[in-house]
Amino acid sequence: MDKPTYMLEFEKPIRDLTRQLEALHQLSIENNVDVSREIAAIEEKIEATKQQVYSRLTPWQRVQIARHPKRPYALDYIERIFTGFQEFHGDRCFRDDQSIIGGPAFLHGEAVMVIAQQKGRNTKENIRRNFGMPHPEGYRKAMRLMRMAEKFGLPVITLVDTPGAYPGIGAEERHVAEAIAVNLREMSALKTPIVTTIIGEGGSGGALGIAVADRVLILENAYYSVISPEGCAAILWKDRACAPRAAEAMKIDSANLRKFDIVEEIVPEPFGGAHNDPDTAAKNLGEAITRHLNEIRGLAPEALLTARYERFRRLGVFEEEQAAAAAMPVEETAEAPKGAG
């Protein structure tokens, strides 16, 4: 078993046991004593502890896995799922934002347009990738590539992994809000199939800016949220340390997102998180994307766009008093919102 070099706080019990095991191994070698019974016992305990820790992760623990420094990033998936990815650069206006990458690639031999948010593995890379926090030009590059995909009939595959759009002076001056809003509007009417997957962090409007799709999938330990747990905690609890409670309260984990119909499918990750086995994680994701794409590929453009509009149109939970509804005769789909509605 290869040893994970980085462990999260809640993985401490596993780490402690692993250390005990190493010490025992060392002991048996140095003193030439038979400790195989003890070793077997500890190994069993490690397995049991892992089961216990990973089989009921809290939303906050999943957030930590989604931000794990060893977690596979977009390019790790792109190279495993697609062939012949060619990166196209720039928004044709200001500069090339390296926190959003994109270009054509092949999925089982067929051309698709891949657009993804990319984080860096180390400090140097992270400066280049701006920690996966796009500027307006990133969203405008994404839209340029989506229009190209529409023009040439390529389905669009997007991979979301961002803490959020970058909150900076330049971003505001170049109107990041407009860049995101235009993407929301244009993606809703883009005449080509779109399949999105949240692979790590789905940080607010910065995530949604490339996530208005026919199908939205999410990896098991990824999260998708209106605001970061820390941001929510700072505002509502006046303390960023309350982030675990905010994560819980906002129901940002994959199971809850499925329940609210925000995503169509949860893509399973290898035990303990995608970083433990990127190949299997990529295989699962590739299969899910292919399956969903095949389901919508044959649809006529009008049917595709109607379904996409309806998909987002029905999202929302509210009450409607009867009297007011009667005064309003011309509404199309009488909303029967899921959940509490």
Binding site: A181, L184, R185, S188, A189, S204, G205, L208, V212, Y224, S225, V226, I227, C232, I235, L236, A249, M250, K251, I252, L257, F260, I262, R308, Y309, F312, R313, L315, G316, V317
Partner: peptide
């Protein structure tokens, strides 16, 4: 967006823009 409605609030951005 209204934090107390979580992700449902975020989706309103897509809905209104569409």
């Amino acid at each position: 967006a209204r934090m107390q409605e979580g992700i449902l609030s975020l989706m309103q951005m897509a809905k209104t823009s569409a």
